[in-house]
Structure formats: C-alpha cells, structure tokens
Design a protein around this nucleic acid. Structure first.
Length: 313
DNA sequence: GCCCAGGAGAAGG
DNA sequence: CCTTCTCATGGG
C-alpha cells in the first residue's frame, strides 16, 4: 500500500492513496463526540468507524488515538476529484483542523470548574464547518423535534428531492440534500412523504428567499458570508428564530461565538450556573461575558455533557 | 395514551 | 416589549 505524501500542515502529515486520505498528528479529535454531539445528522456509527455524507461526498471516517491518525475514505461511484488536494482541503476545512482546540479549552476552563469538566469530558469535539445551505435546512427541520426523528426527516428529504451521489458495494444508495432551486419549486404535497410537519412550508419559503437574495447579490457564490455576518441576521429566513439562527451561524457560517439556547442548554445553565430557565437574556449575557469569543464551542461542550448524561450513563 | 423534542410565527396583551 | 397559543409528527 503506497501512500503518496501530499503535504505537511503544522504538526499534521497528510498522505493520500486513491480514495483514502490519512492525516497523522491530528489532536483534539474524537469522531464519537464530533458526530454524536447534535451538530450534524447524516453520520452514523458503523462498527468502529463513522459512515456519512457531507455535500456530495460519502465517506468513512475513523481515528486512531494512539497514532493520532485520522483516516478518511471517500466512498461510492462519485469519483474523487481529479485533484486530490481539493479533497484534502475539503476535509481539512470540514473538520476545522486549522483551529487549536487545546488552547480554547484552556481559555474556557480558566476559573470555571464546570467548563473544565465538560471540555475534558468532550475533549475531542470539533465544530464541523458545514455547508451553509445544508445547515440552514437541517436546523429549520430540527425545531421542536428530537434528534432521531430529525435524522429521519433529513434523510427522507434527501431521498425524495436530492440527487443520487453514490452507490456503495453493499448496494446502499446515498443522496445529497436538495439544492435551493429544487426545494423552491417543491410543493407541500411533494414534501408530505418526508413527514416534516409544519416545517415543510418553512423550507419552501426559505429556499425562495435564498434564491431571491442570491440573485440580488448578482450570483456571488458566497453572498451569505457577508450578508449574515452575525447570527441574528439569519432570522430573516422563514422558520429561523433565535435558536436556529445561532445553530446555522455556528455550524454553517463559522460564527464561532454563536450560542444556541435550546431546552437542554436552558436546563444546563440553570443547573450549573444558577440562571433561571426562562431567562434567555441572562444566559446570552452570561455566555457573552464568560465564553466569548468561543461561545459556540463552549455551548457544544455543555450540550454534549448533558446529552450523554441524559442518555443514561 | 401521554409527554416531549436542539422552536418559530402569530395573536394578544 | 412580553406572554400564550398553535403548529405536525413520532420517539421514548
């Protein structure tokens, strides 16, 4: 098995062989925590690795903590890019490998034993840099919904309106999420099979807004980066309120100080920091004062801590 | 059968 | 500005 050494970035050595990318020396990385902390909905554990899809890329991801070796195998008939470096660049960005989480954990933990415990517990969490549009529709679907059902909704939406991007050896088919044009033209009847409930019309309207605003920006490929330079501006989308806006900002725009407050964070902040559960402004202020500029990362440590607690262990 | 879920929009105070 | 009601679906 000959791996072609591609490059070295900081402490990370990157090698590529056909569909497999190996990155040695990746720190602060735990796939179980990354994929199971509620930030993404299209990755499932399969034996000791994780199988999932981001954009049109289906992949199997595993990590060996002894060698700090991250292994990414791109799967399916979607031929890997001719330029291997673009695949490397995609995953490097997706897993937020430029960010020094060790430094951030130390910063957040200083003088905060709760955060120290939580960030140690979820020390391998990373904020995935997801596609903006995918994050937008995923978290519109997430509202007033539970994680297992969110996953079902998103997968059935992909099967119904997305494009087939891969067929694996076991015969399983993988579909991308529908793009804005397809979703904008869909009807609520078409979406009824996806069991999205009242969220169907939010998605369709949000897709129309996305297209309208894209055209206003003269088709600039990433117009949204400048338009939504803070999470609250995302509330202009139909179906996006304060909580979803912060999730989309955090996971889809890299607005790392976004602090999504959902029912669990309300309970956590009450339990750990003594803030009344209904005092959302107080929680927002507390996060701004103590967690900035890494509110979103702090939030994930707290959320994951509670999530594991809850699932009974 | 019941309560709830990574809430938001609309209506009413 | 804030509070309350409604929304569709199914996981636990």
């Amino acid at each position: 098995m000959s791996y072609e050494k591609v490059k070295r970035i900081g402490q990370v050595e990157i090698a590529v062989n056909d569909n497999v990318i190996e990155m040695a020396g990746v720190r602060d990385f735990n796939p179980d925590q990354i994929f199971d902390c509620g930030q993404c909905f299209r990755w499932e554990k399969d034996h000791k690795s994780w199988l999932g899809i981001a954009g049109a890329r289906v992949a199997r991801v595993s990590y060996d903590s002894d060698g700090k070796l991250l292994r990414i195998e791109q799967l399916g008939s979607n031929e890997p890019s001719q330029d291997r470096l673009s695949d490397v660049a995609f995953w490097w960005n997706y897993f937020d490998l430029d960010r020094d989480y060790e430094k951030i954990k130390a910063y957040l933990s200083e003088g905060d034993p709760v955060m120290k415990e939580a960030s140690n517990f979820g020390s391998g969490i990373r904020i995935l840099r997801q596609d903006f549009w995918e994050a937008l529709i995923s978290f519109i679907i997430s509202q007033n919904n539970n994680i297992p059902r969110i996953k079902k909704c998103i997968n059935s939406l992909a099967e119904a309106l997305g494009e087939k991007v891969a067929e694996l050896e076991d015969g399983s088919l993988w579909y991308s999420l529908p793009n804005p044009e397809v979703l904008a033209r869909a009807t609520e009847e078409e979406l009824s099979a996806c069991k999205l409930g009242y969220r169907s019309k939010y998605l369709i309207e949000a897709a129309k807004q996305y297209i309208r605003w894209t055209e206003e920006r003269d088709m600039n490929a990433q117009w949204y980066v400048t338009r939504f330079d803070e999470a609250s501006k995302l509330e202009a989308f139909c179906g996006v309120g304060p909580k979803v806006a912060n999730c989309v900002g955090l996971f889809g725009l890299g607005l790392i100080d976004s602090f999504p407050i959902d029912v669990w964070i309300r309970r956590i902040m009450n339990e750990f920091y003594g803030i009344p559960e209904k005092d959302l402004k107080g929680m927002k202020a507390y996060a701004a004062e103590h967690f900035a500029p890494y509110g979103g990362i702090a939030q994930q440590y707290l959320f994951y801590r509670k999530l594991v607690d809850k699932s009974g262990k």
